[in-house]
Simulated scan of single mutants.
Amino acid sequence: MLTPREHLILDFEDTHPDNPAKEEQIRHTFGFSATRYYSQLHHLIRGQDAEAEHPMLVHRLRRLAVERAGKRTQAS
């Protein structure tokens, strides 16, 4: 079961996918850095609760994470 903050993070990510001012909005909305936000988001998308609540978002974010990891592997 997701906490209210976890719901808020997933809802925020769903409504702000590629916003240029996203880092500022993260700090304003959550009161912490974008680094902490993304760390929490990536932890969330590995769990089954997030997938059950936001399946399309979680699948998209997992796919993007795999693509980014593949690019990093190819670059090294």
Rank of each mutant, 00 (worst) to 15 (best):
E13Q: 09
H54C: 02
A52C: 02
D18P: 00
Y37Q: 06
R62D: 01
H28V: 09
H42Y: 13
K71Y: 09
A69R: 14
F32T: 14
F12L: 03
R27Q: 14
K22T: 02
R27T: 14
D49T: 11
R27E: 15
R68F: 00
E23W: 07
E51D: 09
I9T: 02
H7K: 05
P17G: 11
L61S: 05
P4N: 08
R72D: 08
R72K: 14
H59D: 06
T35P: 00
E24S: 08
H59Y: 04
L57T: 06
A52Q: 14
Y37R: 03
H7I: 01
L2M: 05
R36W: 06
H7T: 00
T29S: 06
R68E: 10
Q25E: 15
H7C: 03
S39M: 04
D11M: 01
M56A: 13
A69C: 02
F12D: 08
T35A: 13
H16A: 04
E23N: 14
A65L: 12
G70W: 01
L10N: 01
G70A: 09
M56T: 11
P17K: 06
D18E: 14
D14F: 01
E51K: 13
E67G: 03
Q48W: 07
D18M: 04
L61K: 08
R27F: 11
L10Y: 03
R5W: 01
M1N: 05
R63K: 15
V58E: 04
A75L: 13
H59F: 04
A69H: 07
R63W: 03
H43K: 15
R72P: 00
L61M: 11
D11S: 05
E51V: 03
P17L: 08
T15L: 10
F12T: 04
D14K: 05
R36Y: 06
Q74I: 04
S76Q: 13
H16N: 14
F32I: 11
P55R: 12
L2R: 07
G31D: 05
K71E: 14
F32A: 07
M1T: 10
S39T: 11
H42K: 11
N19S: 11
G47R: 15
R5S: 01
M1P: 10
A75H: 12
E23P: 00
